[in-house]
Design a protein around this nucleic acid. Structure first.
Lengths: 227, 227
DNA sequence: TGCCATACTTACGACGCCGTAGGTTACGGA
DNA sequence: TCCGTAACCTACGGCGTCGTAAGTATGGCA
């Protein structure tokens, strides 16, 4: 069950020492170690939050001592910043990359599906993005990074709105609403895993597109590409 | 600007000592102090999170020393638990209390409006509910308390679904989607305050009811009671 | 083979925070 | 006016954590 990308190619703990001789621990290149620390940090931040995670623990899980972390990132905040930055990039890339197709409904489908994809593939990253950043007011005054993501999606809606004769000033509102819909449902789905992802996506699009009034019984995705 | 209810009737700091004689500090009854600590705790937890808040700081802001907090709540977790419990009660009361009217669309309107109301009136409480709980897996495996709230709303949807011939197994999904929609939008709205609350509610209901396809240009609330 | 940059360590100082032991003050009633 | 109870305080022990100073091993390359 591939929960999260884990590039760490080696066991974090030193090998069980089959021989009496103390097996000299594998030495990584700077880059390798850096990536490994990022992976571990992401995992820990996701499950304990920023303040709840200690540098010592990160270092320990990497089978390494504290100063190594300081060497690479200058501290906890540094590491966290890089983790968050990468996840935001990734999510944004996935969402915008999925926005193919001209029909607005197709766009909606792709976006929703991409977000669910991200949530499934990079669960830890998603958990971090949903939490509050420690250095609040960094980007502005947004409470959650996800809310921030939504603002980057709103221009897509804005264009659509304009072409339909709606007030484009409302696009941020609707963007937040749509993202919130998918995000919270995704969060819930992570713990239930009951309907399959594609089915969840179909229902979400069904709701977003037709509304409660025109709800269909057995919704199907139209422009569905990847599994 | 009444951001949050703040029952604290006295300044937290001791009076600036106008005379040379050390002005003896006001003494509260147990109940008063308890409420005051809850207020302060709510505020601090909202802005710094659970782990980021220290008992010392809470006590200090109350113009009191640490052991007082321990006397009343037995520790940080105790205080936090009470704060969370009260906020969940409050939100739930407001939402369920607003569910009057028979037409499903009216129900939706009332609920959405109530949630926005709560967000506006008890901002700090909302911020706490949106964050993760420190003792995760306490209620189950839910990441956010809001998600938990949604599950308590789903049976309303469930009934409606059954009467419409939809699969009631899907009501949790749609409940999460609807709550997520309002919650994230509310969070965003807290920092923008651009359209008025009633207008936001109208648009949200518009989206939830008609969907993107049947969007109306100037939505109006129907069963709108209080301001 | 020997050098040396780079990866990594042990050890420590300082600080903040949790939680408690035990003493002190105010206040209301007899 | 005295006394008991409820509200509150000072002072500490202990722990975990951050971040740094200074030294050690490793392995590629001349």
């Amino acid at each position: 069950m591939p929960t999260d990308e884990s590039a760490s190619a080696f066991s974090a703990e030193p090998p069980p020492a089959s021989s009496t001789k103390k097996r000299t621990r594998r030495r990584m290149t700077g880059k390798e170690r850096r990536e490994q620390l990022l992976d571990i940090g992401r995992t820990l931040f996701a499950e304990r939050g920023f303040e709840g995670t200690s540098v010592e623990e990160i270092a320990h899980k990497a089978g390494v001592s504290k100063p190594v972390v300081y060497e690479h990132f200058g501290g906890k905040e540094g590491l966290y910043a890089v983790v968050v930055d990468r996840e935001m990039r990734r999510l944004l890339d996935m969402v915008t990359g999925a926005l193919t197709g001209g029909h607005p409904r197709e766009l909606l489908e792709q976006a929703a599906f991409a977000l669910l994809d991200y949530i499934e593939q990079y669960t830890d990253g998603f958990r971090i993005l949903v939490r509050d950043s420690p250095v609040a007011q960094s980007t502005g005054t947004f409470a959650s990074l996800i809310s921030d993501i939504a603002t980057q999606v709103e221009d897509i809606l804005g264009r659509e709105f304009k072409s339909r004769g709606f007030d484009p000033k409302l696009s941020p509102l609707y963007a937040q609403a749509l993202v919130g819909m998918v995000a919270l449902t995704g969060q819930w789905w992570l713990n239930v895993r009951k309907p399959k992802k594609a089915e969840v996506a179909a229902h979400l699009v069904n709701l977003a597109w037709h509304g409660l009034d025109g709800l269909e019984q057995k919704p199907r995705l139209i422009g569905h590409r990847r599994s």
